[in-house]
Simulated scan of single mutants.
Amino acid sequence: MGGVMGKGESPKGSITETKLETKMVEAMRRRASDGSSMKSFNNIILKFPKIDESLRKCKDIFQQFDEDANGAIDPEELKRCFHKLEINFTEEEIDDLFEACDINEDLGMKFNEFIVLLCLVYLLKEDPTAVHAKSRMGMPNLEATFETLVDAFVFLDKNKDGYVSKSEMIHAINETTSGERSSGRIAMKRFEEMDWDKNGMVNFKEFLFAFTRWVGIDDVEDEEGEENA
């Protein structure tokens, strides 16, 4: 399928682009060809609270699969989780996913990493059986949320290549906020928060991680310790 595009653009990018990430980019291109229902970047920002709320509901699922309750899901727990959700991934795919989302490389899925993982699963599997499994677990709103995130990414990805570039991000933000001088700066800040490997391109995974930070998912753990804050 010619998935070599953009492989060698940056030395770091070439290492991180696993089979999984290539699949992810291809899935995004397919989605991009259908277009996005988002009309503006503000559209996306307005959805933050709703997205935040529905992602927090995953906490129960996360805790259910974090069998030793250490705040992280290890590879074995993840395999059992997939089995229970009836997500038919091969061992290799699960390992790939785990590696892709285990940002701290501490062999444990933190809550925000788990959310990113579920969202990638949603993107990569158009498998009706998996959908039933998810709704059995009472996760139908989650799908709507993942759909919103996919849609947001597609909205930003103007040239439909499966990546969001810095100029696309500026373009998306300037479309909305004409005349607000600060919007370009905000765009840059948002973009820098997304572009971890600093290669000027953001894939869906990087986008999702930034997103969990923007809506504050990754500090859920801290809150529980300091109710009085």
Rank of each mutant, 00 (worst) to 15 (best):
D106N: 15
K84V: 00
R30V: 01
G162N: 07
K158P: 01
G200S: 02
K7S: 13
E77T: 09
S40C: 06
M109K: 09
A27L: 02
N112S: 13
T129F: 00
F62R: 04
E93K: 06
V121M: 12
D151E: 11
G179S: 13
P49N: 03
M24G: 06
D127H: 03
L85Q: 07
M188N: 13
F82H: 10
E193D: 13
F48G: 05
G13Q: 11
E193Y: 04
M169G: 10
N104P: 01
G225P: 11
I61W: 07
I115K: 09
E92R: 03
N104R: 14
A172D: 02
D102E: 08
E17A: 15
G35V: 06
S183F: 05
L46Y: 07
M194R: 02
S14R: 11
R213L: 01
G184A: 00
A144H: 05
H83C: 07
S37I: 15
G225V: 15
E9T: 14
R80F: 06
A69E: 15
M139P: 08
S182N: 09
D74P: 13
G2K: 03
G225M: 14
E77Y: 00
L156T: 10
I51G: 04
T16F: 00
T22G: 06
R29M: 07
D218Y: 00
G71H: 03
K79P: 01
S135M: 07
I87F: 03
R56D: 09
N70F: 03
S54C: 12
N112I: 01
L156C: 08
F207H: 05
Q64P: 04
S54F: 00
F155C: 05
A69G: 07
F65R: 04
I61T: 13
G108T: 01
V150L: 02
M28C: 10
D127A: 01
F204K: 11
D102F: 07
E227K: 15
G108L: 12
I44T: 06
V164I: 11
K59R: 14
